[in-house]
């Protein structure tokens, strides 16, 4: 059971799910969740490749780095969404078209 493929399948599934969420959802929070999913899928890949390929902990470090990035990103993104909500009373990204020509 401890083969790389299974990790990669899970990771791919998570990534595709996250991508679908990003592409199809209108709600900003849902998109953010999709992005988190995709990030986590990436992190899972790092850990999996690290476990099965080499002895060092580079992959793990990268996974931790992704977690931190994801947390920072979520913080910034949620702040933007809050402002968007305050301005437009909505959380849908389509409505944020102030720069449209």
């Amino acid at each position: 059971m401890h083969c790389l493929d299974s990790y990669l399948f899970v990771s791919a599934a998570m990534f595709v799910l996250g991508l679908l969420a990003v592409v199809t959802r209108k709600n900003a929070v849902s998109i953010l969740m999709g992005i988190e999913l995709m990030l986590n899928a990436g992190a899972l890949n790092f850990v999996a490749f690290s476990r099965f390929s080499t002895a060092n902990l580079d992959g793990h470090v990268a996974a931790l780095f992704i977690l931190i990035i994801a947390a920072a990103e979520a913080a910034v993104a949620l702040a933007i969404f809050l402002n968007l909500y305050r301005l437009k009373a909505t959380s849908e990204v389509d409505k944020a078209n102030l720069l449209r020509g």
């Binding site: 991508l19 990003v22 592409v23 199809t24 990204v93 389509d94 720069l99 449209r100």
Partner: peptide, 12 residues
């Protein structure tokens, strides 16, 4: 279109 989602789709 101004929709990032569509851009993403195109990219994909």
């Amino acid at each position: 279109g101004g929709q990032i989602q569509r851009y993403v789709l195109y990219t994909i």
